[in-house]
Amino acid sequence: MTFNVDSYLEYFLTLLGWIINNGLFGLLASTGLFIAPLIGVLIKTWLEVKKQGADEGNKGELLIDWLGIQFFPAMLVIVITLAPMLPISLNNMAYNVEQSKHCGYKVPLAPEKTGYASMVSEFADKQAKVPLLWGLVHAINKGILHGAVSTIPCKPDLRQIRFEVQHEKINNPALLTEVRQFVQQCYLPARRKVLDSQVAMNAAQAREVSWLGGKILVNNSELYPRYRAMQPMQRWAYEPNRDQGLPNTGEGGFPHCDEWWADSQVGLKDMLLSDMRQNLSVKLGELFTDANIQDEALLRTLLRPENINISRGKAYEGYGGSLDSTLTNNVSSVVSALGITAGSLAAYPGFDAMRNALPMIQALLIMAVIILTPMVIIFSGYSLKAIV
Rank of each mutant, 00 (worst) to 15 (best):
L273F: 07
G214V: 03
A386R: 12
Y238K: 06
D352I: 03
R192D: 00
Q205D: 04
E178F: 02
T2E: 11
L287E: 08
Q184T: 11
N58F: 15
C186R: 05
I78E: 06
A190D: 02
L132F: 11
Q185E: 14
A347F: 11
L176M: 06
V120I: 06
K169T: 12
M93D: 03
D258Q: 15
P247K: 14
N96G: 06
I88M: 10
K113Q: 14
M367Y: 02
L47F: 08
Y116E: 02
V369Q: 00
L33G: 09
G214C: 10
A315Y: 04
L16R: 11
E112L: 05
T31L: 13
L86F: 13
T328R: 15
F123T: 11
A368W: 00
K269I: 10
V388D: 12
I387K: 08
Y11A: 02
Y227C: 00
K215N: 13
E48I: 08
A357D: 00
S383G: 11
I361S: 01
L90A: 02
A262I: 14
A204D: 14
F34Q: 15
L284D: 10
P108K: 05
L358P: 00
I366Y: 00
D324I: 06
L133K: 03
L384K: 08
L175D: 01
I378A: 15
V369N: 05
F71T: 15
T177M: 04
S118E: 08
S100D: 05
K50Y: 08
